[in-house]
Amino acid sequence: MSAISLGGGVSWVHECFPETDGHIHVSVYLVEAPEGAILMDSGSFHHRQRLSDRISDATAGRGIGAIVLSHSDYPHSGNIPAFRRDWGDFEIVASCGDADLQGLPYARRTKIGDVTDVLGRRFVVLDPPLADRNHTTWVYDETSRILFVADGFGTLHAPGACDIDWGRIPEDGRAEGVHEFHAQTLPWLRYADPNRVMDALHAMLERHPPAWIAPIHGPPIAEADVDRYMADLSDALTRIAAS
């Protein structure tokens, strides 16, 4: 299976990495735009060949015409040079204060608050309440109403549950997967006021209601499951803050 369709021209190209307490996704998303295929992040070099093969398969060999990069962290950006060798000098769209320092001298810079056109498709660039690097951005695809959230909204999952959306993960252990992911991935949450984080997330979801929430490090979350995810996330943040 090369990619799993979420509708609206968006597909999930999932990859996983095994950790002690479960698998963590290190995925990408493929977006069909009027002028070519857009990849949301580039994935890890660890999965380079498989990603390359699956993207080629999903695009009938045409490859991608642009990457929208959430941030320069290597598991998100590590395949850009290789993919450019595969498919040419496609456009890189990224948020950062200084592209050279992030190793992206060829990137088109965006900033929080922009509405940007990529290959004929419009994306709203958002300030992420859950992120590791300061230059991270989330983007909302107006066409599909999919919210791409980089390091936010992750979930560790059990081996064998690698290709199912969040709502279909067995309930037993699912909330723990949300907690484990955030406890280990965003260590600053130990200092956070859970209410402030949750308020910022609720405000964003109200302004940009998602048909899907599309994390890199977890399975996609369908609109019908967002409230349950948010409840689990609130519990997770409260536990982390109390720990």
Partner: peptide, 18 residues
């Protein structure tokens, strides 16, 4: 306020204690 953007979400007393 840029690099540790997450200071906006913290309980200040937790950070100042650290």
């Amino acid at each position: 306020s840029r690099v540790m953007f997450w200071f906006q979400y913290v309980v200040p007393e937790k950070v100042t204690a650290a």
